[in-house]
Design a protein around this nucleic acid. Sequence first.
RNA 1: GCGCCCGUAGCUCAGUCGGAUAGAGCAUCUGCCUUCUAAGCAGACGGCCCGGGGUUCGAAUCCCUGCGGGCGCGCCA
Length: 554
Amino acid sequence: MRAEDYIEGLLRDILQEKGLQWPDKTVIEPPRDKRFGDVACNVALVAAGQAKRKPRELADEICTLAMERGDLLDKVETAGPGFLNFTLTPLFWQRTVNQVLEQGDAYGKCDVGKGRRVQIEYVSANPTGPLHVGHGRGAAIGDSLTRILRTANYDVATEYYINDAGRQMLLLGMSVLARCKQQSGQDIPFPEDGYKGDYIGDIAAALLRERPDLLKANSDEEAERICQEYAVADISAGIRADLDAFRVEHEVWFSEKSLVDAGAVEKTLEGLKKRGLAYDKDDAFWFKSTEFGDDKDRVLRKSTGYLTYLASDITYHENKYDRGFSLVVDVWGADHHGYIPRMKAAVQALGRDPEDLQVVLVQLVNLLRGGEPVAMSTRAGTFVTLQEVVDEVGADAARFLFLSRRSDSPLDFDLEVAKQQTMENPVYYVQYAHARICSLMRKAAERDLSLEENARGDNGILGRLDSEEDMLLLKQIARFSDAVDGAARGLSPHIVSYYLQELAGAVHRYYTVHQVLAASDGDVIRARLLLMSAAAQVVRNGLALLGVNAPESM
RNA sequence: GCGCCCGUAGCUCAGUCGGAUAGAGCAUCUGCCUUCUAAGCAGACGGCCCGGGGUUCGAAUCCCUGCGGGCGCGCCA
């Protein structure tokens, strides 16, 4: 049980007895300063008004009552303007070792989601070129969010939206066809807005090898279609392989084209019009997004007759809700932030609460090498691909670094630092804590100090975990569920990353101060082994939320 | 011009549904390996939380305003 929950239970009883309402503004949390105890609460401050009492006096009364009935309370104090500071008994914290060992991989699970069905759509890069570093950050975030939300008891489905309809597909076909012709000796100009990357030439060459008669046997139009289909298939396969190597999985690959071809978009537009949320103007067809707070209305069908991207995107989101997801999370590049108001408007037009759509914005990745920026341009085709980065620094380091900042702030990613196995690279700091403990366990096994026997909830020996470092580590372990909870509520994987660095710090400190296997007597050795085992379990569970491996030796 | 995000230690950043003396890592300096992995630990140094107003018992956090930086503003996707 969390310390905060234990205290809240106590306080609720006391307030009820005093005939006071539980104030909404009550905060129960570990205080910033450790000298204020394990848990601090402002309830006397925020309830003073309704009690018609001075905060300090009310606090003193609650203090006395809490001390009387809190079996696991060591100390309660009032402080400052009327804060209540609680210190729990060592036993309370020592019990967490058993909780961790009993629950194992399940330790840290919480019920923020209450089984709510949620879909996370992420990466969703156009199949017009390989994934680059920025996509990698989005991939790491989407995948980690999936793991975090599942741990918080959300029913999560993952999806990749393939933008395989529209103009950029035509452009892709034209680009490949142009390269085919050039490689066949024709001196023709390359399309102005075409995709210039080297991979287009590679695709063209491969296609020509497979279909030597491509240019002769087909009309330009037909050849272009073949080029497009071939290129999309080739690039999509590459994207899947890249994501696979990055250990990122999408359960569903959803085709935009399939929506358009099935007439679903037309149906959505009709529905909007019927409800008076869309109208004709200037030969175009408009969505009345201003009805729901957008700056201006948006075009759904251009005067040329073509649908806009927004039109199919609305349909896509309607489709998501129709499939039974009550919460939809979209992970987008931050350059799409201007698109949020119209999508929120669309969600409302579909009859949903705007909160049923959560957009996680992922800021730019600045790729550096030894502190110097690496030049990148998609247009010129000089970008660094995700695959290159993963090959160079490994999936673990890349994922951890991508997840070590809040997603909406820009990230400097230095390839040299990512490769370094030093403290500048926090992933090794965390993994090393795990490897060190595993090494201890191996040594313990050699000496027949089997943990199986010890893990049977013997609180007697856990009482030997009574030093300052024991308490620090125990409390840090117990805080894991807070990290999961916070990360799930805020859709913020970086909270787990920060937590793990602190946990690893507590482990390393402990390891340096206390000899585990050379302790004074057998009970202390066994107790410390149990503690270490629990710490390793939580490191593993935390890293699992980030999709990073926990090696047993390094 | 309008909108969104950002401005915290020399550097990179946490902390922002208001709480007590503002945190971490890196860098710099000082210590710690004949003993469980030194990829580690301990300590020191380092701050007008961009400036200015306001709200209140209390502001890095909320509001207004100025400055500085990033991004977006299409019948593009």
